[in-house]
Write a protein that binds this DNA or RNA. Sequence first.
DNA 1: CGATTTCACGTACCGGCGGTACGTACTAAG
DNA 2: CTTAGTACGTACCGCCGGTACGTGAAATCG
Lengths: 238, 238
Amino acid sequence: MSKSAAKRLIPSLPTLPDLPGATRRQQYSSSTKRALVEAASELFTEHGYAATSLDSIVAAAQVTKGALYHHYSGKQAVFEAVFERIETEAAASIAKAVKGVKDPWRKASAGLRAFLDVVQDPTYRRVVIQEGPAVLGYERFREQEERSSFAIVLEVVNNVLSAGPWELDQPMIDTFSRIFFGALSSAGEGVAASDDPEAASARVEAAIGFMLMGLRSLVDQGIEFVDPVTGNSSALAE
Amino acid sequence: MSKSAAKRLIPSLPTLPDLPGATRRQQYSSSTKRALVEAASELFTEHGYAATSLDSIVAAAQVTKGALYHHYSGKQAVFEAVFERIETEAAASIAKAVKGVKDPWRKASAGLRAFLDVVQDPTYRRVVIQEGPAVLGYERFREQEERSSFAIVLEVVNNVLSAGPWELDQPMIDTFSRIFFGALSSAGEGVAASDDPEAASARVEAAIGFMLMGLRSLVDQGIEFVDPVTGNSSALAE
DNA sequence: CGATTTCACGTACCGGCGGTACGTACTAAG
DNA sequence: CTTAGTACGTACCGCCGGTACGTGAAATCG
């Protein structure tokens, strides 16, 4: 038998409303990639990474494994593409929420609400929170997060801490940010898993808000913070 | 060909210093299980769940797949056994650290230190934190944690919050606990990933301690906490 | 103490899945 | 029109998780 025909699987080529400035080849290419990422995104969300076969992905995307392997180096690369898309969207959503808010405390509050919204998205929960670390490995997972959602948390926390009379160095600010980030992730998961997300979300806001109040109280009292590493005890601002 | 012999793989049966009150069969059984769990623990830690084949596990444990499938229903069940062992050990370690400490704030501090120690263990990081949610699924993961390490955090947080003038209901305490738990996990990961774990650990202690100070300050000021769900604004204790 | 049952494995095999090798049609460039 | 490269499609392989079944030693029973 011959290797038989290798005709395009979708003869009725769908609308290619991609980038108008690109050639037909590039349009085909990017539309195929989009179809793959979208299909993979759904399947990963529903069944998880391990339980999603490449065959099912390419079937849902109306292409074949050859196409997939032409664009991506393998299954993990597809996952990574999905991950990056979700993370980018999430970061943009949160960034939008905090944009323009001047008061650091209100900014933190706005960011918190946006974060709690994001974490309700099933795809985000599954792909980023649940399977991200295991599939990408902790290193790559960290890198990705550091570039997107964590960066925003860092900025917000930085703003809040700068409101205090302290001079904190970068490692210390990072530490605070990590703590808040972890708190938010965990709390967000709790919210998403709750049978009454509304109430749970309100509780989280209240709890975090209360802790922020605590920090603020220390600020107002002019309590000094002693860096355990540098030994710098940041005194009051003049 | 006949199915050939099915002689025991380890004819020189090793010392069976297990439970003296058990029969030989039970001793064989539990020693095999221990060997499997230990081998799997090492391999999972080093290569991760997906990259560890059952063949490699049974080879390291000096048994065959038949033995493994006799004791466990499959690969995931083996992972679960490893997970449970690690979690139990970790919980015991932390519980020991907080045991006997009376002052809630000091108790929290001691627990924090113990937690930061636990999270340095590569097996704990890999099996519990990194791959636990993905392999077990978030539901089972949660259940397991709730029974062990999270339970301790809950208790400690409960103690701390009870020190305040507030009357918090269970969901609110849970929320605070989740927040702290997430903060600790994330911070712990940061510590473990740092190139100077000592310094990083000190920073985390300082940061968390500072936030506890904030809470304490609110306590001292008699600030009331308003539950957003119940609407209860817990006034001062008289 | 012999017979029978039960348990704790060992062996052989299967189906599915990730990955690869290679072939082909369509496109853009000259 | 030729030519080179791209964007796929097809056939196949090796590994791995899981299963079916066999076997001998230990417990149980009469």
